[in-house]
Amino acid sequence: MNLNRDRVRNLFGRLLIHLVLLAGVIWSIFPFVWMVFTSLKSYVEAAASQSLLPTQWLFSNYLTAWNQVAVFPRYFANTIFIATSTVLGVLVTGTLAAYAFARMQFPGRDVLFMLLLSTMMVPFEVTLVPNFILMRYFGWINHYQALIIPWTASAFSVFLLRQFFRSIPLDLYDAAVLDGANHLQFLWSIVVPLSRPALITSALLTFLGSWNALMWPLLVTNTPQMRPIQVGIASFITDAGTQVQLLLAAVTISVVPVILLYLVLQRWFIEGIATVGIHGGS
């Protein structure tokens, strides 16, 4: 009897949780669904219709959007190259810095870490012009260096990885030292493999930021050959009107790779978010 009541209560609880989760899923997936459906409508329907589904499915919008941006493939290749390089850079610098902050003893460590964190509070707009001048000084304008190198160090990634590294038991380090390992060897063979969720989280967030960047690439490049996908998307917007359906078709095209990447990596991504600062890797 008692057991039965527990089971009912349990079932009810689970149902409730699932309902809440389902609502969350719908809430977060709706913009994507809306985007895809709207990208298949006609202009007037996209702009005015209340219904979610198109009355006429215009798959040709995708072709039109693709053709309107003459250098779409080039934009794509640029974005993939820039995002991938930035991610690699962030992982290398982030891992090294985070390890130093998490595991090594040196004077001023905590002050330096605070200083690093405080850079996260400086808005992008404030540093825009000085950074641009710096790029000009280096002669990097309209080169991939300007698009990649300034973004290959991320205070947020250092913070994320440091928190993760600190949760790795010290005993492991002692054991590694007994086996004759130095810091770099310990980092590479023990810490990095254990921190995969945090590394992947950091990689995905960096990738996303890089994929979505518009203002900086516009600022430091001058030819279509050097520009990323977001520039192509921006050129659908005008002061007099916007072909919403074409804009959304272009946006859909541009997010497909990001979604694919997320689907492949989502297991670690969720693990990364869930375990930071709570316990060590699995």
Binding site: V129, F132, M215, L219, N222, P224, I237
Partner: peptide, 22 residues
């Protein structure tokens, strides 16, 4: 001739370029 984003992006870019002396 170079596209520099929407008119407001263009304004930002020109402002930065003026500051950089270019």
């Amino acid at each position: 001739a170079t596209y520099q984003g929407t008119y407001s992006d263009l304004y930002k870019k020109v402002t930065a370029a003026i500051a950089a002396g270019t």
